[in-house]
């Protein structure tokens, strides 16, 4: 069990720091966003699994040789009273930490789910009150706002795409279709599920900058995926032009209400990891991730060569292994 525990601890360390940093710096994800998204999910899942697993297996050492016999031994020890040797005290501390960590992560995920669902419902009600159904597009509503806006709102009652009057008048039909395709891709590919999980991960570990970085990367990959899907039914140039127009026409963006659209009662909040530049435009604190934001734009105009099938298969194999290894280490009979 000590071997398994140490191996899990080593894996947890690698997945907490060097692995996400390397992935965030790598160039290939823009050539295979779907595969990269899978790898990010594997890293997050395996990271949590190995961190908790390491503490669990370490704590069970005095109680049995494997996870199952250790848990059984621990239960027997609890019911028969525990002799408090220093080793047992350390074990109990390790087990408690594993329990607290697991509960913290799961409860935070549940809480994020509930809060997000409530906000979506409120938002949906506001949209339904302030918009009218699109005459041409199904499940699309047009908001009575001059600012060019387009976004999608997932929901249990059926998801909707929201466009603004400003957007509809700014874009021509082809550009508008490109925007709608992009939004639909987000909804159909359920990007909001991944984003929600990474959001929960970030809020669970506020002291852990990698989680913020991971969320940013995942957000970017999801945009690239939606861009790629939209490009299947429209040409790159139209989509790129639509994005340029929409972004250019929204002077106050990302929490900067001082631009063209002045919003009463909007507090100027900046999320963690975002610094406010002198121009009032919020940039990620890390300039490298700012470069990656540019990457999304350059790849819109110059779509990169997709990653080879072999390379993608390799990455998928790594992702599967990342989740499989800690699982096997946990349940394998006595590795010690």
């Amino acid at each position: 069990m000590l071997t398994a525990s140490l191996a899990l601890a080593a894996l947890a360390l690698v997945l907490a720091w060097p692995a996400p940093i390397l992935l965030a710096r790598a160039a290939w994800p823009s050539r295979a966003p779907a595969t990269a998204l899978l790898l990010w999910q594997a890293i997050a899942l395996a990271g949590g699994l190995s961190m908790i697993g390491s503490l669990l297996t370490f704590g069970l050492i005095p109680f049995g040789g494997t996870l199952i016999s250790g848990l059984g031994g621990f239960a027997r020890a609890l019911s028969h009273g525990i002799t408090t040797t220093p080793l047992v005290v350390v074990s109990i501390a390790s087990l408690s930490l594993a329990g607290v960590l697991a509960a913290h992560l799961l409860l935070n995920l549940a809480l994020t789910l509930v809060v997000t669902e409530r906000q979506r419902l409120r938002h949906r009600r506001l949209v339904e009150l302030l918009s009218s159904p699109s005459a041409t597009q199904p499940n699309t509503r047009v908001l009575d706002s001059a600012a060019p806006l387009a976004y999608c709102l997932p929901g249990n009652l059926g998801s909707i795409t929201v466009l603004s009057r400003g957007l509809v008048s700014l874009l021509d039909d082809a550009e508008l279709a490109a925007v709608v395709e992009h939004e639909k891709a987000h909804l159909i590919q359920r990007h909001y599920v991944v984003l929600l999980a990474f959001d929960a991960w970030r809020t669970s570990l506020p002291w852990f900058p990698i989680a913020t970085r991971a969320q940013h990367e995942v957000g970017l990959l999801v945009e690239m995926l939606a861009d790629d899907t939209a490009r299947r039914s429209t040409d790159s140039r139209t989509l790129a032009l639509a994005i340029a127009l929409v972004a250019g026409g929204t002077p106050g963006r990302d929490g900067d209400p001082s631009g063209g659209t002045t919003l009463p009662g909007t507090p100027a909040l900046a999320p963690a990891g975002v610094v406010r530049s002198a121009t009032g435009i919020a940039y990620p604190a890390d300039t490298r991730s700012h470069d990656r934001d540019r990457l999304r734009l350059t790849r819109l105009v110059d779509p990169p060569e997709p990653l080879t099938l072999a390379a993608r298969a390799g990455v998928i194999a790594v992702a599967v292994a990342l989740v499989a290894v800690p699982t096997v280490l946990l349940i394998a009979p006595s590795l010690a």
Partner: peptide
């Protein structure tokens, strides 16, 4: 997580 904006992170 609540909604996905088209422009994403384009400034």
């Amino acid at each position: 997580a609540v909604l996905e904006r088209f422009v994403g992170q384009v400034s």
